[in-house]
């Protein structure tokens, strides 16, 4: 299966691990990531204003490209996943936004939300299947106790992203189990890390990440995984005593599949 792949800016730069390991894992699992040639930044946060059109167009371009290829659109970064799915929902269900965006775009055929946006984890769960992945694991992460750190953007709003239960998600825990490790469920896994406030108001993210580490470490996790480069940054900058290592989920996947040291 071939997917139109939207890496997003961070994956080309500070979060190359998230991207590189995903590509290697995809090969091992038998699906192909075909990078969209001229993708543009999604903007990082979804423009919530109902009258904001221009800021949604970069997403529409990527979505329309995937449609033209007849492919589903795959992303890895929580923020890109969030923005693309929400803009796609607007294009499909909010006539006003859809009409105005199409007026700007001037496409031969208007884009009406036809593309299916999937997160890499959703492909693992819904298309490959965690059971299948477990079978392909060559280096099981036996004995590792891993906390899934979801953050906000990958889950909420649950009704539009339809990724998992936003208050009691399971996908990353099932993923951890498939890799042979033990998931640690802790209540702060879907609580905010402080997000973009860390640029100007660092205090909040220090407070938030301390709660996240205290909780996950308290419940016995010896590492966290995440899909979000901003969460990764904030967690890494934490000065909490309870700090434990944080990895991109794709790194552990590549490791378990035995493709961490790939050629690419």
């Amino acid at each position: 299966m071939k997917y139109s792949y939207y890496p997003g800016c961070t994956l080309k730069n500070k979060a190359q691990d998230l991207d590189v390991y995903a590509r290697r894992a995809a090969v091992a699992l038998g699906f192909e990531l075909e990078e969209i040639p001229e993708w543009q930044c999604c903007g990082g946060v979804y423009p919530m204003g109902s009258d904001e059109i221009a800021t949604k167009l970069s997403s529409v371009r990527a979505l329309n490209y995937a449609k033209e290829q007849g492919q589903d659109l795959i992303t890895l970064c929580s923020a890109c996943h969030h923005v693309l799915k929400r803009v796609n929902d607007d294009m499909k269900n909010v006539a006003d936004i859809s009409d105005r965006a199409n007026n700007y775009m001037g496409l031969d055929e208007p884009y009406k939300g036809e593309t299916t946006v999937v997160h890499f984890l959703e492909v693992l769960r819904d298309r490959i299947g965690f059971d299948e992945i477990a079978k392909k694991v060559v280096n099981p992460l036996t004995g590792k106790k891993i906390g899934a750190y979801y953050g906000c953007l990958v889950l909420r709003p649950g009704k539009i992203l339809e990724f998992d239960d936003p208050e009691d998600p399971k996908i990353m825990e099932d993923f951890i189990r498939a890799l042979g490790a033990e998931p640690v469920i802790y209540p702060y896994r879907n609580e905010c890390c402080g997000a973009y406030s860390s640029l100007k108001e660092g205090g909040v993210s220090q407070e938030r990440t301390k709660l996240i580490f205290d909780s996950s470490e308290g419940f016995g996790a010896d590492m966290l995984i995440t899909a979000c480069p901003l969460c990764m940054y904030n967690l890494n900058k934490s000065e909490a005593d309870s700090k434990i290592p944080v990895y991109y989920f794709t790194e552990l996947l590549a490791e378990a599949l035995g493709v961490k040291e790939g050629n690419s």
């Binding site: 239960d165 936003p166 208050e167 009691d168 469920i185 209540p187």
Partner: peptide, 11 residues
């Protein structure tokens, strides 16, 4: 109460 995960009923 499955839809009210914030209250940790299942947890």
């Amino acid at each position: 109460l499955d839809k009210f995960g914030e209250y940790a009923y299942n947890e």
